[in-house]
Design a protein around this nucleic acid. Sequence first.
DNA 1: ATAGGGTTAG
Length: 613
Amino acid sequence: MLQQLPKRPFQLPPPPLSAVNTLTIPPPQTDHIFEHTKDNKQLCDLLLSLTRSRSLPKGLQLHAHFIKSGLQSIPLVSHHLINFYSKTQLPLHSLQVFDESPHRSATTWSSAISSLAQNELPLIALELFRRMLGEGLKADDHIYPSVTKSIAILGRIDAARCVHGLVVKTGFECGVFVGSSAIDMYAKCGETRDARKLFDEMPEKNVVSWTGMIAGYVLLGEDEEALRLFKQALVEDLDVNDFTFSCVVRVCGNSTLLELGRQIHGLCFKTSFDSSSFVGTSLVSLYSRCGIIEGAYRVFKEIPIKNLGLWNAMLIACAQHAQTDNAFALFEQMVSVGVKPNFITFLCLLYACSHSGLVEKGKYYFELMKEYGIEPGHQHYASMVDLLGRAGKVQDAVLIIEKMPIKSTESIWAALLTGCRIHGNTELASFVADKISELGNVGSGLHVLLSNAYAAAGRWEEAARARKMLRDQGIRKETGLSWVEDGNKVHTFTSGDWSHMRTKEIYRKLEELGEEMERAGYVADTSYVLKRVDGEEKNQTIRYHSERIAIAFGLITFPPERPIRVMKNLRVCGDCHTAIKFMSKCSGRVIIVRDNNRFHRFEDGKCSCGDYW
DNA sequence: ATAGGGTTAG
């Protein structure tokens, strides 16, 4: 491990001293009831209970009393005061108590560093840590977790290795506390391999170590490793907790592994972790992402104490499934039970409006944000531009961009271009594209949109140039994939895929259904193919888009009453959308397609999105 | 005394 350390120790930027200087001192008045209590121990106990109940006003009064009576200089008292301000989220007060305390014990240092780390002031925490080492003091296994947490917040791998080296030198690396927090630190710095090495080397591990490792894998998208480790924990009959479940259910949600997710839901039920709001949040998201909105509602209703995240997850679920009115009702409900909405809540609402074309409602929520003291971020502006653009009010969208106080981002431009594309506003699209091109430094996602915008306007040279830039950056347009789950197996298809075992049957089904669809009035619309290809070729490309193959597979595999759930990584093209409506009508099946941002539930020739997507 | 928390966008 030591060899991996960087040659030079990392340098930290100075802490924001200005923040330290603006400290507010505890109020001058003490409560007279403290005067009657002579016993220091009793006062300390009182402070402890105030810490537990986070009663800030009383604590401030008690602090003032300690100052007045000169008790603050007792190490135990200052230690408790530092902890009190840590829990009441006033880390700079902690720091001040620390600075004023004349006799500092190891616990004084430790609690001060912890307070800063817990309250998101990692740089000041690390500065204090450095001061401590500078004074010749030795760090111990109580201090390291706070130090590693600070580095985890910063995500600095160089600092992580440096501190790890220090830990190794002092011989604390194998302890459960230091080890577990170092695992978390490495994962947050993007290094699961270092984390795993540490994990494997620990002689003793607990729930936090295991969960930390699993969560690390999830964080960095190494889903299979996460599931493998989780399985190992189950096989070895080790402790798992709500956080562990929340992590693995999230993995299932990310990859829409419905069957596995259901099994794990069963385990949550057995261990009664299913009533945890964190697990509930992951479960709601799982069922929603797998197209089962009813399941999401069921889980949501069963959670006794609903936190903000759970409400948000349910709101997103409603938005994704075009249950807009439910989303609005949920919002009213959450406000009425006293849950304070945050910026994500409003993103969900705007997202819901955008999916139903509710411009006025969207404007209303956009304004409402400010009443809750939330400044709209670039995501909210992107959402508004998306909403207006989709609803055909592209000019209003441009106005929003011109008037907003922040710099436009890629997502905002992308939303505008999408609006232009949907409404065939090729002129504005190519104008916007020029503007974006001038800005330079365009990300991969935008190049695709730029190229499409130019192509739609017939500006083939610019379109080609945008494509070339994509290639030069080594980025290729994401391959369109569709997948269907059958039991514990996932079948994935690309466009024109011939690799599946049952390919022949699949294409026979497509041919057969195609004829029936044409008799029912389906006409292929090839205008969605932007590449310059011949008519017949266009027709072929579009007929075998991956989602159609996946649906055909579902048709020949699943029993008639079972809805066919298809997941897709890209947007459904207009022609496929029409085609799938006919497919649902001609086959009498329910077909649910999740594209890259929402759900389409096709039934009897109609789609739940109401053709607005 | 000390370690871990989700959700959204083209």
